[in-house]
Amino acid sequence: MQKKLNTGDVAFHTVNYIVFALIALLCIFPFYYLFINTISNNDLSSKGLITFYPKEVHFSNYSQVLKLPNFMHSGFISLSRTVIGTAVSVCGAAFLGFLFTKQEMWGRKVWYRFLVITMYFNAGIIPWYMTMRSLHLTDNFLAYILPAIVSPFYVILVKTFVESIPLALQESAQIDGAGYWVIFTRIIFPLITPILATIAIFSAVSQWNSFTDTLFLMSKEKLFTLQYVLYKYMNEASSLAAIVRNSSGGQGLDLANMQTSTSIRTTVSMIVVLPILLVYPYFQRFFVKGIMIGAVKG
């Protein structure tokens, strides 16, 4: 297979490698830069004096930031919605996706379209907000969960996947008298776990990253998610820094590492992105698989 490289090839590959290395660097550098800011001397980081490597490393920012009012609670809200929202998304998509593969369902085509069209069309923010309000889903944790039960894209993924499973498996069970529920739980569910894993990852990331629903619907601090809190901190970081400075009383803390608006912003950002960074490298292939199957239809 190895072909001899001529000069043109060598030049091409050199340029290609350099360009892609640069692109990759551009993508990853902000993450690295964020991290070195959180562990560097706070005085230096607030003056923008951290460039490419950390200076005077310390980790006290992380323990300090946890003392921010309501920060832990927001973390708990984010975590809960991610866990519960993902669970209902996966179950909803699995079951509905399976049902939509049944040719004999009454009005299947119509209902499928009824679902899929919502991916492209919505009534708009205001009517949606008014609906959520009339359902008492404003300032209500359920607003994070209930809309997640049916997601058209995930249903499509499951449907496409189930359709690729030989029908004979289900037919033989049917002849033995198994109902749809039994077929679903005993035969289909175990077979579709790969796609469900993909959906779980997609869903978890989107729940964790979700920001606008909090912005629109929630006014009570106890329902704020970490993303929303981060956004608020971006604008209020300096006053928060003062709160943390006062609450800790500065005891036992190096004066240079008192909380600044920069340290608060960067540390909270790092905490918010950390779960993604931890999960991502292992699950990257699931994401790729998901987009491939999704691409088959829509």
Partner: peptide, 21 residues
Amino acid sequence: ILTTLPNFISWVLVYSFAFML
């Protein structure tokens, strides 16, 4: 792997990066 990573962070975080840089 490195170039798809930014797709999975929220816009709030992108803004935080922008602010920082």
